[in-house]
């Protein structure tokens, strides 16, 4: 492994090129393997493709670059606090448009921290949603009859279904 390499180039599924620093790429196991396998010989001209679209990959790389220093060296409490605030800002995004893609990317790239953060963000957004909003964002068809739905309401009188 050559120590002179500080950043590598990767391709998104849309074919766009992105740069990611080696320390940031280490947050993902598959990316790390990719680095070791492919890109550390100086004459390597092969650019690895990551099966994540450009829009999502930008966000994933942004997350990695922000979290890499802390993941590699540990951090003080004030840093952790600052990072928490950054995460909250970072996660302010549209559910269907981008959050679901981040979830899938974090899952595919084995990024535990981002996956956990994205799952929690999705849960926080969903908890206030109505049943029909949930059906819409998850592309779910209502397969209950109206009698069954009425029965469900009767079973859980303490809970709002709207």
């Amino acid at each position: 492994m050559s120590s002179s390499v500080e950043a590598i180039t990767v391709l998104s599924s849309d074919g766009d090129e992105f740069k990611i620093t080696v320390s940031a790429a280490k947050l993902s196991k598959p990316l790390n393997w990719m680095l070791e396998d492919v890109c550390f010989s100086d004459d390597c001209d092969e650019v690895p493709t990551i099966e994540v679209n450009s829009k999502t990959l930008v966000k994933v790389i942004e997350y990695c670059e922000k979290h890499a220093p802390r993941a590699n060296s540990g951090a003080s409490d004030s840093d952790a606090e600052e990072l928490k605030k950054w995460d909250i800002e970072f996660m302010k995004m549209d559910v269907k448009d981008i959050l679901f893609h981040i979830l899938m990317a974090a899952n595919y790239l084995h990024m535990e921290g981002l996956y956990d953060l994205a799952c929690q963000t999705a849960a926080d957004l969903m908890k206030g949603m109505t049943v029909s909003q949930i059906r819409k964002i998850f592309h779910i068809k209502n397969d209950f009859s109206s009698e069954e739905q009425e029965q469900l309401r009767r079973q859980h009188p303490g809970c709002s279904f709207d």
């Binding site: 049943v131 068809k141 209502n142 397969d143 809970c159 709002s160």
Partner: peptide, 8 residues
């Protein structure tokens, strides 16, 4: 509990 009524 609410989401038990999303689908089967």
């Amino acid at each position: 509990v609410k989401f038990t009524s999303v689908c089967r």
